[in-house]
Each structure stands twice: as C-alpha cells, then as structure tokens.
Design a protein around this nucleic acid. Structure first.
Length: 585
RNA sequence: GCCCACGUAGCUUAAUUGGAUAAAGCAUUGGCUUGCGGAGCCAAAGACUACAGGUUCGAUUCCUGUCGUGGGCACCA
C-alpha cells in the first residue's frame, strides 16, 4: 500500500541528492506547513558552516513538479513548504482509494509474531496490575495485524506451580466448596492469604504444600481434580473481564499445557552440559535478607544453569530439591513448542519490568540451547503501585480490575442520567466510555514508568482522555448526519486553505507512519498522542469554520469529506487501541 | 551490599529517539449565547528538565559522579 507521506519523503531525498548530498529519510522532521532536513551532519563532513551549507543546498533545488511550493534555509535546516493544493488532492485521493483500509500496510506480509500477554494466575484475582499486560498486549496484537503480520496471541495462564500445592492444602483444611463456587476467586484468594498467615506460625504447612504440588506433578488424581476445578472456575471469571475489555486470544494454553514437555527440555539442557545438579544454598549463603525463597528443601541438590560466565550472577533453577519444576522449566518448554509449531519471526513477552532479570536469563539460556535469541523480546512496563506500596496478593493488598471498571462505568452513567435516551442505551454507552477511559489512561503514557494508582486519574473524563477522543468522534458523526454526508459527493480539496484544515489533512497523512513507528518501538502512547492531537486539531477547526453552512456548496462538500476522513482515522485508531466509539454520548 | 530502571510547571504526563522558542491535561484566574453537541474553545499564570561535570554545531535525551525514588538479586510466578 502506498501512502503520500512515503512519496513526499522520497521526493525530498531525491531533491537533496540532486544537490549532491545523500540523506537518510529518518532525519526528515515536521516543520510548520511542511518538512525540514537538518544539514549539520553533512555540513560537518564537508567542513562547512551549516547555515551557509543549508542555504547553498536550498538555492540549488528545483521544485517544479514536486509536492513543494517553497524551500528555504533556516538555522542550518533546509525547510520545505508544501504545495497545499497538490498535497491536499493527493491525500484525499489516497484516502478515497483505500477507504476502510486507510492506515493499514503490508510490511509484515509473510511474517509471524507471537505475543504472550495477560497471563493471569489461576485462583488469584485479576488485579489492576494485570490490566497493563492485557491491554498493551492486545494493542500490539491489533497494530501488528494492521500491518499485515500473522499474529498469534497466547494467554500463558499461570495455572501450574507451587501455589497449587498451597491452595490444595488450604482447601483441604479450611475450604468450603459451595462458598467457592459462589464467588470463586475472592474465596480462593482468602484461602491463599490464610495459608500464608498460618504458615508463618506453622512452617510445616509449607512442607505439606510442597508435597501436594509434587503429587500434582506426578498425576495424583485427587490433586488433579481439585486443580482442574479451580482452573475452570477461575477461567470463567477471567472471561467475564475479557468480555468487558474486548480481549481475544488465539490460544490459551497456559503453563500446565507444558507439563509433559518439560522432561525433554531438561534432558537437552543436561545433554549440552548446561544444567547441573548442585547443592542448594543453605541458610548461611542467603543471597539477601528477608528472602522468601529458602522455605523449602535446604541442603539437598537442585538442577540449575549457571550463567556467571555470561555476566548474569543469578543462576536459573530447572528443578527444585524435591524434583518439582519451576516457571523457568515451563518457559523453556514453551519457547521450544512455539518455535516448532509456528516458526515465528518474533516472540514478544508482555510482562512487567520486575521480571527483566528473569527474561535476560531465559533468553540467554535459549541462545545457549541453539535458538536465535534475536527473536525473543521482553516488552516490559512499570508497576502500578498503591499509596501503601507495591500490591501483594499474599498480603491481600490488591485493587480488583473489575471494581475499577464498574466504578468507571457508574461515573459515566451519572453524567448520562438525564439525557434523552433509553436505559439500555445509557448502559451501553456508559460501558464504552467508562472502559475506554480506563484503557486510554494506561495506553497514553510511556509504559516503562511506574504508575501510582489514582482513581481520579484513571477515570478522567475530560482533557487528554479517552472520552475526549470519543466525544470529538460523536460531534463529527452528528455533523455528517445533519449534512447528509455521502461518500460519493463531488469534492475539491484545493479549497481547504485555512491553517486548521491544512493541519488536519497533514495529520491524516501521517496515520500509517505512526502505526509503523509503534511497531518499531512498541510504545502505544505514540498512537494515543497522535489521536489526541488529531482530536484537538479537529476541535479547533470545529470552533472556527462552519461545515454545514460553509460559503459554497463545493466547500461544504469538501469539508464534510474532511470531517469524514478525520472521524474514520479517529475511529480506526481508537479501535486499534482496543477502544470502542459510541455514536452518541 | 550488588545489578537495573526512573527524577521535566503545584499534580499527572509529552517532546518526531541527539534537533529549531521544552508541549499538553488536571488544578487556579479571566473570557466565549447570533452557526454543526459546552465531556468543548480562547487567554493568563506556572520550568535554571534533581544536582555537578563531560562529549558536540546542538543534550530532557549519550557518558561520569552525587543525592533521591522504585524494582530485582537460586528452590514464588
């Protein structure tokens, strides 16, 4: 698919080449009503004064038959001004040709991407902390897909591991089946919290839990039955949230899927002499104080991979001293399975920044096992913290995602309360706007930072927020309806000469570039900020220039079409962010 | 202790990844009824980009050091 912006940039490269300088297209930057090229680097290569150098280049350029009407040298830049009549026409034609596909691309044709996201833990609440992985992962999914990639979204559920030993122990001691069936996750969480409290007083409980997990891994039918039941009821609850958030997966394999695929992986690692049985750390060799990691199996042997040679001080454990497996073991088997099954060009792990070391270890080991480590990438994001500090499931200190969404929805409902619409409609709109607000707040900022949880911020309905973008979309829809807009109307883009119109058209031009940019850097907020800029620019246009009552019939039709293009980019962009748009609000 | 992030207006965040006068939202103050939805628009005020050096035509961005915050550091995931 061809976009005007690509052609415009190519033309600049060619023009400057005609003056004897070869430039990289990426250095071209936006400047007023056009584009600019910094000439410092090239001036330096030729040991010339950058201002004079830029001027000399600018003077040599011949702009006839180009997208530009003017070129000047300023502060060492060569600045090109668009020939607006020409570029307007091209952009409208570009849009008319591609229609619904406008923004999409084919740069990912023939490439496969696996995205590992969400991955909540069974029997634990889906907290606000899981929100980030879930929605960031889904947005990356959508954007990759829009550029022609084959994408496989895999929900790598935390449905295996020591915690199930703890849960089974707790369930057998204090559990009540009917209570759990009534409100599964909250009741299971209570059991989990109680277990940790009791285990502090009676450490022998930890041994019991370890025993149960061992039984589970050995296929004990009672353990398996309880585990399966806990998994089922948890998944049912997760699906309610995925529905609310409009999240879809191609696979929900989970860690348990690899239960029978770990032995093979361990054998390979042993065969390559990577993994070795060594004495476990004893109490005197604690890596740090307050470490919770020494609660089991002291003094015996564990299977680990030492990574000191590669600058990683912490070894990776594949088997505990009681023989059971760990997250690591499962992730190695997972990577192997994924590569064998889908032969991906990339596997993205959308997981919090606190697991950076873990993924460094994992990728290093996969490399040592002979895999191309370039295909693995940890897409990390900061923690969401509460004023009391880090959230902790064990301490019962969590915010439930479902509560946040419900609060958002009810705040929107209050606003809609006295609008002239049916209850059903209010309900529907409140959900679109409320959920959109929560998602947008997260997606509109750089993901690497920690976020302090703040109700008012996450539920913000004005300013730079999801509802603001949705509101601009609704206003445009209203104009299009009143103006009886029809895509086949005769338009004349040359008539759009105001600053607001030019800026809007040029923003529309950039849509595809932004999507490619997000694929390069995996920063969703670049798309969010672009859409916000588009919405803001529309709002300015809206205040200043009449559409339906425009001076001439032709101008009215062209402005209607401009509104339409903007609304479609807004809608498609928001949809890529996983945010719906209402028709009224 | 060691390792990794981060420190930008009162608060929450941007900055085309090293570019032009550091940009928005919230909060504060003042303004916008003849036109398409005020969840909006305009304006004022608010910044020695934590601090001290360095690299270069150019640094919020890269390097070094100091201080501060958060995270991680083998039998949790």
């Amino acid at each position: 698919m061809n976009y005007v912006l690509d052609e415009v940039k190519k033309e600049i490269v060619d023009l400057i080449k005609s003056a004897g300088i070869k430039i990289e297209p990426d250095i071209i930057c936006y400047y007023h009503n056009g584009l600019g090229v910094p000439m410092f680097k090239y001036a330096k290569e030729q040991k010339k004064n950058p201002k004079e150098f830029a001027k000399k280049i600018a003077d040599e350029l011949n702009l006839s038959n180009t997208y530009f009407s003017k070129v000047i040298a300023e502060n060492g830049y060569v600045d090109f001004t668009f020939d607006n009549k020409k570029i307007n026409k091209e952009i409208f034609e570009n849009y008319q040709k591609l229609q619904d596909k406008y923004g999409q691309g084919d740069s990912g044709k023939g490439k496969t991407i696996i995205i590992d996201y969400s991955a909540p833990n069974i029997a634990k609440p889906f907290s606000i902390g899981h929100l980030r992985s879930t929605i960031i992962g889904q947005v990356l999914y959508n954007i990759y897909q829009s550029q022609g990639y084959k994408v496989i979204g895999d929900n790598h559920l935390g449905d295996w591991g020591t915690q199930f030993g703890k849960l089974i122990t707790a369930y057998k001691k204090w559990g009540d089946r009917t209570k759990i069936n009534g409100d599964p996750i909250k009741e299971l969480l209570k059991l989990y919290v109680k277990f940790h409290k009791e285990a502090e007083i009676e450490p022998i409980l930890n041994d019991e839990a370890r025993e149960w997990f061992k039984k589970l891994e050995q296929g004990n039918s009672e353990a398996k039955k309880i585990w399966q039941w806990m998994r089922d009821v948890s998944l049912q609850e997760f699906n309610v949230i995925y529905d609310m958030l409009n999240i879809k997966f191609d696979e929900t394999l989970g860690e348990s899927f690899y239960e029978d695929k770990m032995d093979e992986m361990i054998k390979i690692a042993e065969g390559k002499r990577l993994a070795k049985w060594v004495p476990a750390l004893d109490e005197n060799r604690k890596p740090s104080k307050d470490s919770p990691r020494l609660e089991t199996g002291r003094g015996e042997k564990v299977l680990l991979i030492d990574l000191k040679k590669y600058g990683i001080k912490t070894p990776a454990l594949l088997r505990k001293s009681d023989g059971t497996t760990l997250y690591f073991t499962r992730d190695l088997a997972t990577a192997k399975y994924r590569i064998k099954t889908w032969n991906p060009n990339k596997i993205l792990y959308v997981v919090g920044a606190e697991q950076k070391l873990y993924f460094e270890q994992l990728f290093k080991i996969l490399e040592l096992l002979g895999y191309d480590s370039n295909i693995f990438e940890h897409i990390y994001f900061g923690l969401i913290t509460m004023s009391e500090g880090k959230m902790s499931t064990r301490a019962g200190r969590v915010i439930f995602l479902e509560d946040v969404l419900n609060e958002a929805i009810s705040r929107v409902k209050e606003i809609l309360h006295d609008r002239a619409m049916s209850k059903v409609e209010q309900e529907k709109i409140a959900k679109i706007v409320g959920v959109g607000a929560v998602k947008y707040t997260d997606l509109s900022q750089d993901k690497k930072y920690n976020i302090k949880f703040d109700w008012d911020k996450i539920l913000s309905l004005k300013g730079n927020s999801g509802p603001y973008l949705q509101y601009q979309y609704v206003r445009i829809g209203s104009i299009l309806a009143k103006g009886n807009f029809d895509q086949s109307i005769e338009i004349n883009p040359e008539l759009l000469t105001t600053d607001e119109e030019k800026r809007l058209i040029q923003l529309v031009m950039r849509f595809n570039e932004i999507l490619e940019y997000v694929i390069d850097n995996h920063q969703t907020h670049n798309l969010a900020n672009y859409l916000y800029e588009l919405a803001t620019e529309f709002s300015k246009f809206y205040e200043k220039h009449p559409v339906i009552n425009a001076r001439s019939h032709e101008l009215r039709a062209t402005r209607l079409y401009l509104c339409y293009m903007v609304s479609q980019v807004l809608k498609n962009g928001l949809n890529l962010l996983g945010i719906d748009v209402p028709e009224k609000m």
